[in-house]
Design a protein around this nucleic acid. Structure first.
Length: 490
RNA sequence: GGUCCUGUGGCCGAGCGGCUAGGCAGAGCUCUGCAAAAGCUUGUACAGCGGUUCGAAUCCGCUCGGGACCUCCA
C-alpha cells in the first residue's frame, strides 16, 4: 500500500513528493485571520482544508507542529494613507477599545472553528504578543543592508534584495512589469522604490495601536508578523506554509524576501495555496458584499439562502471539491451535499447491523489503498469521497443480503471509514455533531399519534404506545397541549 | 493593460493522452400494505474552430466566455 504524499508546491509549480526536513517532525504554518470582523464562509474553507492537512499528516504518523496566527494588529489599508488600520477603524465604529474588537472577533472565529470541528492549532500566536520578535527581525534585516529608515518608518529595500536574491519567484511576476502596471504613485511617498514595503510604520498622533521601537512609536508592517512568528516557533526553515490564494502576492512573496534577507535562506519547503469560495462565479469577500457568515448559513438566515445547512453538511460540501479549484456556492449544490452526507453517515452507522459471511469476493484492501492514493495525490478529497461511496454501496448491499462480506472485512470497512471520514476529513455523525433537540422532536411526533388515537377512542393502541415507552424507562405524561416525557431513573 | 487560472452531462464536481469518477436530480426494475430507504440497470458530456497523434475532454494554436492577482483580503 502506497502512503507516499505528493503536495502541489506553489513555488515549484509541481506536485512534489513530501519529504519533511526533520522527519517525523513536520512544521506547518497557516496564515490566520485578521480579527476586525467575523470570519465569513470563504475564510472558513481555507482553515477547514488546512485542518485536513494537519489531520492527514498526523494520521500518517508525523509529529506535526501546527502554527496558525491571529492578526490583531491592524494592517494599514493603503501604503499611502496615514496609518488607518482596519482594527482601529472598526474600534471607532463600534466605540470599543481596539483590543475589545480583537477579542470579540477572535471569539467568533474560535467558535466557528469549533463548530466546524477543526482541531486547534498547536500554537496560535498573536501579532501583538510578538512585538519584540518582530523588532528583532527588522534589526537583522537592517544589519544585512536590506532595509532603510525614513522618518521613523522602516522599508524593505527591494532593489538591494534583488541584487542578491531573486524576487517574485512564488507569484511569478517580475518587478519591471509590476512597475508598468502599478497605479499612479503618490509623490509624497517615502519609499525609495515603488515595490518597497513597510517593515515598520511610524504612528501618526491619532493612531491608537502603537508600540515603542528603536525608531520611535509605531506598528509593524503587515507581512512581518508571519515571518517573525514562523521563525520563532518553526525555525528558519520549515516544511509547509499555507494560506489562501489571495495571499500569494504580495504577502507570501514578502515573507520569503524578509526571511531570506534576515537568515540568508528561503523559509519554506512547500508552499500551499487554497482556492477561493465563489458566489455566482465571484470570489466571496467582504468588500464585494457577497459574503455570508457561518451562523447565517446554519440558520438559513440570508437572502441568498433558501434554507439552513448544518456545519457538517457544509464541511462535506467543501470536501467534495479539490482545494485548488474554486468552489461555487449554491443552494442546489448544498442540498445535494446534504443528501450525500446523510447517505454516507447512514451507511457508516449501519455497519454493525450487517451480518458477516464466511466468504466474500470484495477487495477491501484495494479500496483502502485507493483511499490513501487519493489523499496522497495532493489531498484529493473528492476522489476519497468517491471511494468511500464505494464502501457505502458494499455496506448497504451487505445489509440487504446482496453483498457478502466477512467479519474481518466489515471491521476493516469500519476502520477505513472512521479513519478517513472522521479522523482525516474531520466529519462527524449527525448525532455527535448536534442535536439535543432530536429526542424532543421525536417525542412530539409520538404525542401527536397518541392524540389521534385518543380522538378515535383507540385507547388500547394509545396505551400500547405508552407502555412501550415505559418499558424502556421513559414516562409519557399527557397535558392539555400535548405531552411531557421524562426518563425514569432507576 | 500585465501575470496566471479556468470553461466537463439538468446541477455540483473529479479526471488531464487509450481504461465506469462520484454525489444530487431523472428514467426503468427489485423489494414493499402505503410511503421511505436500499440495491440493480440506464440516458444525455467534455465552450467553438483548427492542429499534433494510431488514438485527445486530456497536448499545441486561435476564437469566444468566466475568474483571481497586480491595493487590505482565506
Amino acid at each position: 500500500m502506497s502512503k507516499e504524499l505528493y503536495i502541489y508546491n506553489s513555488l515549484s509549480r509541481n506536485k512534489d513528493l513530501f519529504q519533511p526536513l526533520n522527519a517525523p517532525h513536520v512544521g506547518l504554518y497557516v496564515c490566520g485571520p485578521t480579527v476586525y470582523a467575523n470570519v465569513h464562509l470563504g475564510n472558513c474553507r481555507t482553515f477547514m482544508f488546512f485542518d485536513v492537512v494537519y489531520r492527514y499528516l498526523t494520521h500518517l504518523g508525523y509529529k506535526v507542529r501546527y502554527v496558525r496566527n491571529i492578526t490583531d494588529v491592524g494592517h494599514i489599508t493603503s501604503t499611502f494613507d496615514d496609518g488607518v488600520d482596519r482594527i482601529g477603524q472598526q474600534a471607532r465604529l463600534e466605540q470599543l477599545e481596539p483590543m475589545e474588537i480583537v477579542q470579540k472577533y477572535t471569539n467568533y472565529f474560535h467558535e466557528m472553528m469549533r463548530v466546524f470541528n477543526n482541531h486547534s492549532p498547536s500554537i496560535e500566536p498573536t501579532a501583538t504578543g510578538h512585538m519584540i520578535e518582530q523588532i528583532e527581525m527588522i534589526k537583522k534585516i537592517l544589519d544585512q543592508g536590506f532595509a532603510y529608515e525614513v522618518n521613523g518608518s522602516i522599508y524593505f529595500d527591494v532593489q538591494a534584495y534583488r541584487a542578491k536574491y531573486p524576487y517574485g519567484e512564488l507569484s511569478g511576476r517580475n518587478v519591471e512589469e509590476l512597475y508598468e502596471n502599478t497605479r499612479t504613485l503618490d509623490g509624497q511617498d517615502e519609499k525609495k522604490f515603488f515595490a518597497d514595503f513597510a517593515l515598520w510604520k511610524a504612528a501618526s498622533p491619532e493612531h491608537i495601536m502603537r508600540w515603542p521601537s528603536p525608531w520611535g512609536e509605531g506598528f509593524p508592517g503587515w507581512h512581518l508578523e508571519c515571518s517573525a512568528m514562523s521563525t520563532k516557533y518553526l525555525g528558519e526553515q520549515f516544511d509547509i506554509h499555507g494560506g489562501g490564494m489571495d495571499l500569494k502576492f504580495p504577502h507570501h512573496e514578502s515573507e520569503i524576501a524578509q526571511n531570506t534577507a534576515c537568515c540568508g535562506k528561503g523559509p519554506v519547503k512547500y508552499w500551499m495555496h487554497s482556492n477561493m469560495l465563489t458566489v455566482n462565479g465571484q470570489k466571496m469577500s467582504k468588500s464585494l458584499g457577497n459574503s455570508f457568515l457561518p451562523h447565517e448559513l446554519f440558520a438559513g438566515d440570508h437572502p441568498l439562502l433558501e434554507k439552513g445547512f448544518g456545519p457538517q453538511v457544509v464541511r462535506f460540501f467543501m470536501m467534495q471539491a479539490h482545494y485548488r479549484s474554486t468552489l461555487d456556492f449554491s443552494n442546489e449544490a448544498l442540498s445535494a451535499a446534504e443528501k450525500g452526507y446523510e447517505r454516507m453517515m447512514a451507511a457508516y452507522m449501519a455497519i454493525e447491523e450487517c451480518k458477516p459471511s464466511a466468504q466474500s469476493d470484495a477487495d477491501i484492501d484495494a479500496l483502502e489503498a485507493r483511499c490513501y492514493d487519493a489523499m496522497g495525490d495532493d489531498f484529493n478529497t473528492p476522489i476519497l469521497i468517491a471511494e468511500l461511496f464505494e464502501a457505502v454501496r458494499l455496506i448497504n448491499g451487505c445489509k440487504n443480503g446482496q453483498q457478502a462480506l466477512t467479519a474481518d472485512q466489515l471491521a476493516q470497512l469500519k476502520k477505513i471509514m472512521t479513519h478517513f471520514l472522521m479522523d482525516v476529513m474531520g466529519l462527524q455523525t449527525p448525532e455527535s455533531a448536534s442535536n439535543v433537540e432530536l429526542p424532543n422532536i421525536m417525542m412530539d411526533a409520538v404525542f401527536e399519534v397518541r392524540k389521534g388515537l385518543k380522538e378515535k377512542k383507540d385507547y388500547a393502541t394509545a396505551d400500547m404506545l405508552r407502555d412501550a415507552f415505559s418499558s424502556r424507562n421513559i414516562v409519557l405524561k399527557d397535558t392539555k397541549d400535548g405531552g411531557e416525557w421524562t426518563y425514569e431513573k432507576k
